[in-house]
Amino acid sequence: MAASLATCIFCKIVKGEIPCLKLMETESVLAFVDIGPIAKGHSLVIPKHHAATLSDLPESEMADILPALKKIAIASGAQNYNILQNNGRAAHQVVDHVHFHMIPKPAEAGDKEGLVIGWPVQKDLSKDEIKTIYEDIKSRL
């Protein structure tokens, strides 16, 4: 169930009710160091506007997100990093407020630090099935 504005931890951080280790702030975003990092320098960029998922976030609130992520990635000194954004419980979203992770991935750390992912290719989809999916998505754009 989506958190209300009154109970959303990220909304409380935006309002200053909960402290954070603020890295940067614009009119529309707040960026801070993750307090449960999976790598040194793991940071979050959140829109100030409360929206549970990316598809709920108005486009007018998105302009500063990627520039903030880029600045933080550069400032972290990470040569390798992941930008991660989850939507919904099945996709591992824990806080019901859109947020983006910048997660450094030190090459020498292997799978001991940073994001550990696999990429299971859906090999049982035929080219016709892929084309049907493409046509469906394209028709909705």
Rank of each mutant, 00 (worst) to 15 (best):
I130H: 05
K131N: 11
A68P: 07
S60Y: 09
Q122F: 14
H50K: 01
I117E: 07
V45I: 13
E61S: 13
F100G: 09
H92W: 12
M102Y: 06
K40L: 12
A63P: 09
Y81V: 05
E108P: 00
M102W: 06
I65V: 14
A68H: 00
E113K: 07
P67T: 07
L54C: 05
G114Y: 08
G77F: 05
Q93I: 02
V95T: 04
G110W: 01
I65W: 02
L69G: 02
V121H: 03
K127R: 02
E129P: 08
S60M: 06
T53N: 15
E59L: 12
H97I: 06
Q122V: 14
S76Y: 09
A109D: 03
D64A: 05
G88H: 05
V121P: 01
W119Y: 11
I65H: 04
L69T: 02
N86P: 00
L66Y: 03
Q122E: 11
I133G: 09
G77A: 11
A51Y: 01
L125I: 09
P106E: 04
A73S: 12
Q79H: 15
A78Q: 01
A107N: 00
K123D: 13
A109C: 08
H92Q: 15
K105M: 12
Q79V: 12
A52H: 06
D111F: 14
H101V: 01
L57V: 00
E113R: 03
T53K: 09
E59V: 10
K70I: 00
S126F: 05
A75C: 01
I133F: 14
A63E: 14
I74D: 13
A107F: 07
H101F: 00
N80E: 14
G118V: 08
D96R: 09
Q93S: 10
G114D: 03
L125S: 06
L84M: 06
K127I: 07
A75V: 02
A109M: 07
N80W: 13
L57F: 05
V45G: 10
I83K: 07
L69F: 06
A90M: 14
I72W: 08
M62N: 04
E129H: 06
